[in-house]
Every structure is written in C-alpha cells, then in structure tokens.
C-alpha cells in the first residue's frame, strides 16, 4: 500500500459504507483477511467494525434502540478476531462511484490502454463503460490521450516476466555508447518517460535506464537472480550517491516543482519571486540539458564549472545556427512528402 494522501473522514466513510456489504457476503471473516482484501491496517478494520456495531438509524422512537442498530458477535471479535455481522440496517450494497472517482479510474485506464501491451481496446472500452454506468453522475471530463511508448516496453516487460537478462546498447547522459547486460527488475513510467530499473552487470550495481536511450535490444536466455531484487526499494528510481556533485541554481519559486526529480534542497532567495535551490547531480551532462530546456527559468549559480558547461552547451547550439545563416543553407532539406517512417 502506498502512503498516498492522508486517510481523512471521506476515506473512513467510504470504507464504512463498503465494509458493510462485504461483511454481509462473508458470514465469518478474520480481521486479517479483511485488512488484506481492502489493503488497510488491522487496526483500521477493528476501528471500523466497532463503529459499525454501534451505528444505525434513529428509528421510530428516535432513540437508536437496539433493533435499529447493526450488531455483531462481540465475543468472536474480542476472542477470535473474527467479524460476524448479525444485524443489518439500511444498507446492503456497495455505493456508486462519484463522478470524479470514475474519472480517475477511467483516465488511469486511458493511460494504460495507450501502451502497446494493453492493446485489448475492446476490453478496456467495455470496462470504461461499466465504470461510467456505476457512477452516480457522468464521469468528470478528465482524460489522458495516448503516449507513444514504443515497442521496447513490450520486449523488456516480457523479459521481466520471464526472469531473463537483456542486453542492449545504451547511450548514457554523458553521450557514451556502451553495451549493457542487465537483470531487468521493473519497468516504471513517469509521465511520458519510461525507465527500466535493474542490476547492471557492467557496473555491478543497481541502475536506472531510460528506455528511449536503448538500442539493439536483445533478450538472452540467462536467468536473473531473484535475491538481488529483494534488496531493492520498490519505488526507488533515482538515488543519490556519495560522488554526486552539488549545484546551486536559482529559479522562480513557482517553478520549483519542475525540479522535483532532483530533490532540490534549501530555501530562501534573494528576491520575492526567485529562490535558490541545491541539486545533486552525478555529472554536469544531465544538468546542461535540463537547464537549456528551461531557458529563462533556471540559472546555475555555482559552481563556476557547472556554469561553464551550461554556457558552452548553449553556445555550441547557437554556433550551428550561425553556420546555417552563413551558408544560407536550406537546400539540403528533403521533401517531407517522400519521407517514410
């Protein structure tokens, strides 16, 4: 269970309303089984059951008399940690989805359906229709359109499933091509970008690879070793290392979220709307790409070497345009109409 946002009153109410029909369908069920099924802690299950057992409707007398309340076998709960619901009030079915709940799942499905291995469009469309029908209002108009993830994913995913090593040519952020042999553990996406997390035999260490920097992908028959995977943090994608370089940047406070992947540290700034942040990077090659892609937003303040790398990167780019102007070349531009894919 990911931590996610705090479990508030809305979540608790939803859990109470969902737990009742579930318990109705399960005559005797252990607290542990319920906790596993709903993915919540045992304490939360007990807390909810205790509340359900004393809840009900005002009834004709408006006094919440015994017959107007849910009831459970208290001994079973206290002695055996078993839930036995003996009396029901008012509800006996799962509530419908809200417009936004249905939309959240539908948009998530849209994202999954754009991936090549989830190409069963009909099955996903039918599932979306069911969600729409199960919502109390038309789902919110939130949508995710296709991403082009490429075919690499399907190949790598099959290797993860089959537990075999893969080999590929990898272009590192430093601009070096190297042949890698990797035990693939996990494919993870963050928005449009896809990553493979695995054990790199060349580096003898856990590494994260961008799928779009792989070429010449080849699936071997060598099995992966599961022990290394067990030591892996399930959500780790990028991690710092002792050899990382510290870089100080300045940017508008509203733009800080753009650097979230780099875990920026520090607070304060010299003016009301610009703030300073410290990033840790493995080398300046990734940094120069990042900063050049955020022109006018992020400025490297220190160290000087990092500023020089960024400046030279931009200057090299400008030089190409200067050459182009000098030659006034547009002649070697091919006709787009004849281009194949």
């Amino acid at each position: 269970m990911s931590a996610g946002p705090a479990f508030g009153a809305s979540d608790k109410l939803t859990f109470l309303l969902s737990l009742v029909p579930f318990l109705m369908d399960h005559d005797r069920i252990s607290v542990t089984a319920v906790s596993e099924h709903f993915g919540v802690s045992s304490e939360r299950v007990r807390e909810a059951v205790n509340l359900i057992a004393i809840s009900g409707i005002p009834g004709e007398t408006s006094q919440y008399l015994h017959g107007d309340l849910f009831d459970i076998q208290w001994d079973e709960l206290e002695v055996n940690d078993l839930i036995v619901l003996t009396h029901l009030v008012a509800i006996d079915d799962s509530p419908r989805f809200s417009a936004r709940e249905a939309a959240a799942l539908i948009a998530g499905l849209q994202y999954l359906s754009s991936l090549p291995e989830n190409a069963d469009v009909d099955a996903i469309a039918s599932l979306m229709a069911k969600l729409t029908r199960s919502a109390s209002e038309a789902p919110s108009q939130v949508a995710v359109s296709g991403t082009d993830a490429g075919t690499t994913i399907a190949v790598v995913r099959a290797a993860v499933r089959d537990g075999v090593l893969i080999e590929f040519d990898y272009l590192s952020a430093r601009g070096e091509h190297e042949q890698r042999l990797v035990e693939p553990w996990r494919i993870q996406s963050v928005d449009r970008d896809w990553y493979l997390r695995g054990w790199c035999h060349l580096r003898e260490a856990a590494r994260t690879f961008r799928l779009d920097r792989m070429s010449g992908l080849h699936v071997t028959t060598q099995p992966s070793s599961p022990r290394r995977l067990e030591a892996e943090q399930p959500e780790a994608l990028f991690e710092g290392s002792a050899s990382d370089l510290e870089v100080t940047v300045e940017l508008p406070s509203a733009a800080v979220s753009l650097l979230a992947d780099y875990a920026p540290q520090g607070a304060g700034g010299r003016s009301a709307d610009r703030v300073g942040r410290t990033l840790r990077v493995a080398h300046y090659h990734g940094l120069k790409r990042l900063v050049a892609g955020l022109a006018g937003v992020v400025t490297v303040v220190a160290p000087v070497e990092a500023r020089v790398v960024v400046r030279d990167w931009a200057a090299a780019g400008i030089a190409r345009y200067d050459e182009l102007d000098a030659d006034n070349v547009d002649a070697d531009e091919p006709d787009p109409m004849i281009v194949g894919t």
Partner: peptide, 12 residues
C-alpha cells in the same frame, strides 16, 4: 485519493 476511494468501493 479518488482512485483509492473507488477501489475501496470495488473491494466491497
């Protein structure tokens, strides 16, 4: 949060 609540309802 909304996905999580929808899943709770589905788990029912």
């Amino acid at each position: 949060a909304e996905s999580r609540r929808a899943m709770t309802k589905l788990n029912a």
